[in-house]
């Protein structure tokens, strides 16, 4: 752990950054908030000896509303998401998740782009990004492409990002007003805990509690964050009642493929996933779950 042995490049604009990245590609490590990278450096896990410090790229520090989409620049921190009116009104599930990440210190520094770049199956912003139909914009000096977040991850710590590409933006879909949502995370303490299981859900129910559509994404229970596709299908077009809540939760716990690690066993993770999904959907059924307020002025 010798921080001084790293060469740090601090480009002042995106072009400059992409230029350096083109040249150095896999020789250089991107660093935004550094809340993952600094830990990796300390533990001597990083092989790159150069760092590309993104913190001066102020052009990536924005939250824009474009029709049904919210575009979030790569440098936006969790704290900024928590404070953003647009996000609070239209994608509150992301705010709820942000508030569970680390503690205040981490939320002040950590970014969505960093959570995506780190590609941990337990990344807590990722299940919400799944259910928000997020996409990741990857830019290089010569090209630009957009990948849906649900296709971005290849495995633990592996993504589709090419070494010369930078995540510059994350786009999310606004959630329709009135939709139910919940984010639940199980960690072994109330702050600075890595998820044993996490669940993000957005549910569209009619006034009789019939499920029009539902999105369920789970973290820490498979090599990447995953949609519970079978369970979503099972729920769709059905009347939500206690039996269905139990059935969906059961189905989720069967659909996931957790592993046993230092934090908990695979078997327990299945039970906990059942519990989290059951509790979230129960609250939806009872009407006590949170609902999206929407983008109209005056809702607040």
């Amino acid at each position: 752990m010798n921080y001084s042995q790293y060469v740090v490049h601090s480009p002042q604009n995106l072009n400059e950054a992409l230029g350096i990245l083109k040249e150095k590609a896999s020789e250089i490590r991107l660093i935004s908030g550094g809340t993952d990278v600094m830990v990796l450096i300390k533990d001597n896990i990083i092989k790159e000896k150069e760092l590309l410090n993104l913190s001066f790229l102020n052009e990536l520090r924005y939250i824009h509303e474009e029709g049904n989409t919210i575009k979030i620049g790569a440098l936006i921190t969790y704290k900024e998401l928590e404070k953003s009116k647009v996000v609070n009104l239209n994608a509150p599930i992301l705010v709820d998740a942000s508030k569970t990440i680390g503690a205040a210190q981490i939320q002040n520094l950590g970014t969505l782009a960093g959570n995506l770049g780190n590609a941990s199956p337990a990344g807590d912003s990722i299940p919400p990004l799944y259910v928000l139909n997020a996409s990741v914009k990857l830019q290089s000096a010569d090209s630009e492409r957009v990948v849906p977040v649900s296709e971005f991850f290849l495995g633990p710590r592996k993504t589709k990002r090419a070494p010369n590409e930078l995540i510059t933006e994350i786009a999310i879909e606004k959630t329709k007003p009135g939709l139910y949502y919940f984010f639940k995370k199980l960690g072994l303490r109330e702050a600075n805990a890595i998820s044993l299981v996490s669940v993000a859900c957005i549910a569209d129910l009619d006034q009789y509690k019939k499920v029009n559509s539902i999105k369920l994404a789970l973290g820490a229970v498979a090599p990447t964050v995953m949609f519970a596709v079978k369970s979503e299908k099972l729920a769709t077009d059905k009347q939500l009642d206690l039996n269905l809540v139990d059935e969906i939760a059961r189905s989720v716990s069967e659909e996931i493929s957790p592993i046993t690690d230092i934090r908990g066993s695979a078997e327990y993770r299945r039970r906990a996933a059942y519990g989290l999904v059951y509790e979230g959907l129960y609250e939806v059924l009872m009407g006590t779950a949170k609902r999206v307020s929407g983008s109209f002025e005056g809702v607040y």
Binding site: A103, L188, R189, E190, A191, N192, A193, I194, I262, R263
Partner: peptide, 16 residues
């Protein structure tokens, strides 16, 4: 020993 820091050895936080 497999849990030898604050990430893996879970002491309570102020919120607990």
């Amino acid at each position: 020993p497999i849990n030898n820091n604050y990430t893996t050895y879970i002491v309570p936080s102020v919120r607990d």
